[in-house]
Each structure stands twice: as structure tokens, then as C-alpha cells.
């Protein structure tokens, strides 16, 4: 069984930090894709689904909330888990995202332990 990951964040720096944090957490991914916004992510997912998506909320073009809804309409992403990664921390927003199809939530700033805790239940 393999584990494929997509990191969706408009900040290239944040994508690198997330990658580094995953390495520090000891989690092993077989492949990692990156996308700078929801639209780009959706295009890639349409042809190549992944197991886990780590997704920012505030992004240009298509934000994280919209991306969650769109991914849930893709038949090839039925089993894809979506973990939101954001500075937004209001419970109301988290509830809305979870109701919309997200599977978890990590707030920034984060630690390797947080990634271990939130991602490992979804790893193959």
C-alpha cells in the first residue's frame, strides 16, 4: 500500500515548511504533489487522485473551502482524505469545513507531533 500526498498552499515557503515538518514527524510518503491554489489542485486531482490532501484555506483563484466541495464531486477522489492547514481557528469555520467534506484540521503554527497525530490515522 502506498501513501500519496498533495500540498495545496499559495505560499511556496509554507509548502516547503509542511514538507519539512512531515519529514520531522517520521511519516513516510511515497509521492508528493504541490499546488498553489484550489484550481490548480483540482486540475491535477482530476487526472491523478491522491490519498491525502493538505489544504490551506485563504488562497487566490479557488480557496480551500471551495476546493473541498469540488473534490467531493470527483468520483476518483472518493477515498481521498482532506486535512485543512490554516491559521484560521474558529470552531464555527472548522465545523463548516468538516460538514463540507474535510476530514481533519491542523492550525498554524504547527508541530511535527500535530501532523503525526492528524495524518497517521489516514495512512495506509
Amino acid at each position: 500500500m502506498s501513501n500519496s500526498l498533495m500540498i495545496v498552499d499559495d505560499s511556496a515557503t509554507m509548502r516547503k515548511i509542511i514538507m519539512r515538518t512531515i519529514r520531522m514527524s517520521g511519516l513516510e510518503m511515497d509521492s508528493t504533489e504541490e499546488a498553489g491554489n484550489g484550481k490548480e489542485a483540482l486540475e491535477k486531482l482530476s487526472s491523478s487522485p491522491v490519498d491525502i490532501i493538505l489544504c490551506d484555506i485563504n488562497m487566490p483563484e479557488m480557496n480551500g473551502m471551495e476546493l473541498v466541495k469540488k473534490v467531493r464531486e470527483l468520483s476518483n477522489c472518493n477515498d481521498t482524505k482532506i486535512i485543512m492547514v490554516s491559521t484560521e481557528s474558529s470552531q464555527e469555520l472548522i465545523d463548516e469545513l468538516m460538514a463540507g467534506g474535510a476530514n481533519g484540521y491542523i492550525t498554524k503554527p504547527f508541530t511535527p507531533e500535530k501532523f503525526q497525530d492528524k495524518l497517521s490515522p489516514f495512512m495506509n
Binding site: T13, M14, T87, E88, S89, K108, P109
Partner: peptide, 11 residues
């Protein structure tokens, strides 16, 4: 990103 994360933490 530093501004973003500090703002998130303040919020």
C-alpha cells in the same frame, strides 16, 4: 507567512 501566522496566533 510570518505575518500570516502571527496574525493567526493573535486571532
Amino acid at each position: 507567512e510570518v505575518a500570516n501566522m502571527v496574525m493567526g496566533s493573535v486571532k
